[in-house]
Simulated assay, not measured.
Amino acid sequence: MLDYFALGILIFVGLVLFYGIIVMHDIPYEIAVHRNHPHQDAIHATGWVSLFTLHALWPFLWIWAMLYREDRGWGFSDGKSPRNHVQHLEQQIAELQQRLERLEAPRTLPQASPEPVPAPQPPSTPAPGEGI
């Protein structure tokens, strides 16, 4: 009776280890699915290959799955989404184009209202008898 119980425990532990390793190797794939990773299938296939390479690839799979986030892509940013970043760049381009148009516009000096210019007066000569 005790022999059968020990055999049952050994089979149970073996099954738990077998399925535990399979579940553990699917963790990077599950992360990739959760993050909407563009290489989900490649991560999943490489996880299965990692089972046969004594788990040497698994840490790299974890890193690969963790690098991508849908809101920022592959890069490191302040949390702005790529769409917001593109909109921000387009707004800056529009502002720069407006500034360039203002700089390239022909410059005209402000015209003053034309005032009549007084005619030059001949120098006054002293009348006879007036003098020094």
Rank of each mutant, 00 (worst) to 15 (best):
E70A: 01
L103I: 02
H37E: 01
D3Q: 04
G75K: 09
G14F: 08
P123L: 11
P126F: 15
R102N: 13
Q92D: 01
F12R: 13
I27T: 06
D78H: 10
S77C: 10
L57Y: 09
V13G: 07
V23H: 07
Q91F: 14
D78Q: 12
W58M: 02
Y19S: 02
L15S: 05
Q121T: 12
A32Q: 03
R107L: 15
V86P: 12
I63M: 08
D3H: 06
S50L: 01
W64S: 00
E101W: 04
V117S: 13
L10F: 14
M1Q: 03
Y19V: 09
W58L: 12
Y4A: 10
G79K: 05
A65M: 01
I93Y: 10
E101Q: 11
R72T: 09
Q87W: 12
T108P: 01
L57C: 10
Q97N: 06
L103R: 06
L67Q: 10
Q111F: 08
A94G: 08
E101K: 07
P28K: 01
A45F: 03
H37K: 03
D78F: 02
P82S: 03
I27Y: 09
L109N: 15
Q91W: 06
E104H: 07
I31P: 04
A32W: 02
A112K: 11
G73Y: 03
W62L: 08
G79F: 05
P59T: 07
Q121Y: 08
P28S: 03
A45R: 10
E104K: 11
H25I: 03
F12I: 04
A32N: 07
Q91A: 14
P123G: 00
P82G: 08
D26L: 15
R83N: 08
N36Y: 06
Q91L: 11
I22P: 05
L51H: 07
I93P: 00
W74C: 04
A45W: 09
P59K: 00
Y19M: 06
P106K: 04
R69S: 12
W62N: 11
P59Q: 01
L10K: 09
S77I: 02
L2P: 06
A119Y: 08
L2R: 00
E104D: 13
M24N: 13
H25R: 00
L15P: 00
L7R: 06
T46M: 14
E70M: 04
F5W: 00
G129C: 10
Q98L: 09
A119Q: 14
A127Q: 14
S50W: 07
W74P: 09
L10D: 11
D26S: 15
A94H: 02
F52A: 05
V86M: 08
A6G: 10
